[in-house]
């Protein structure tokens, strides 16, 4: 029994190997990009728009609103990163409705890759917003003593991100696989339905946490702006 789609390798040359995770990811990417292109090539700016355009607009505006509510004042700047995380994880997890499909998020390599992306994105956004010193200052907040704890928290939360997503999705798939051998008729369907909910929630949690981390990293510039504002 394969625990991870990484283990199913299709092609190998030296250290390069194309496994199920990569293939599934490419297929998902292709579908997402093609669907987006098909819908957005005929966008209307009138008051009456197509259903698909409406759905996409709702999705994009919903993500924008979520990012803004967490505290990032210019959500368009972060939409590419956070939106892509959410869309990719959500689409990847919801695709379990297709039989024989193994989500790439059930591979620890994929979830770790996403977590590392967040780990890298946080300082990038933080530095772009408040400069190197401003960003580094966030490590000694509220006092200098907190520096090691902040560094530990930075690393541990990245690990937590990766393992949380991986654990939830992998366990879902594993439970369905086990149930198939015990009770092959009804239970796997119920568990798949549960898996859909869990998958969507995990996508939401992952992207929200990424937003929160980025927001925390850009807090320094925000507090500066607040201090500069004259009292009314």
């Amino acid at each position: 029994m394969e625990l991870s789609p990484d283990e199913r390798v299709f092609w190998e040359y030296g250290f390069i190997h194309i496994n199920l995770t990569l293939v599934t990811t490419w297929v998902l990417m292709a579908v997402l990009v093609i669907v987006s292109y098909l819908i957005t090539r005929r966008l209307r700016t009138d008051i009456r728009i197509s259903r698909w355009q409406c759905i996409l607009e709702m999705l994009v505006l919903g993500m924008n609103k979520q990012i803004q509510e967490i505290g990032l004042e210019e959500p368009k700047k972060y939409l590419d990163f956070i939106g892509t995380i959410f869309i990719f994880i959500a689409f990847s997890n919801l695709s379990i409705v297709f039989p024989g499909y193994v989500p790439p998020t059930s591979s620890l390599s994929t979830t770790a890759a996403l977590a590392i992306s967040v780990f890298l994105a946080v300082p990038i956004f933080g530095i772009s917003e408040s400069g190197v010193i401003g960003y580094l200052k966030t490590y000694v907040q509220p006092t200098f003593i907190m520096l090691p704890f902040n560094i530990i928290s930075e690393l541990s939360r990245t690990l937590a991100l990766a393992v949380r997503l991986f654990g939830n999705i992998m366990s879902g798939g594993l439970i369905v696989a086990i149930l198939l051998s015990i009770a092959p008729l009804l239970f796997p369907i119920l568990m798949t339905v549960l898996g859909l909910i869990t998958g969507l929630i995990q996508a939401y949690i992952f992207s929200i946490l990424a937003t929160v981390y980025i927001a925390a990293a850009t807090q320094e510039s925000k507090s500066k702006k607040i201090k500069l504002k004259p009292k009314n």
Partner: peptide, 22 residues
């Protein structure tokens, strides 16, 4: 290898979605 490839995949997907969606 998969991890690095997935990071690259993610960045490519981000660029493509930015280009064709957002």
């Amino acid at each position: 290898f998969t991890l690095v490839a997935q990071v690259i995949n993610f960045l490519v997907l981000m660029w493509l979605l930015r280009r064709y969606l957002y």
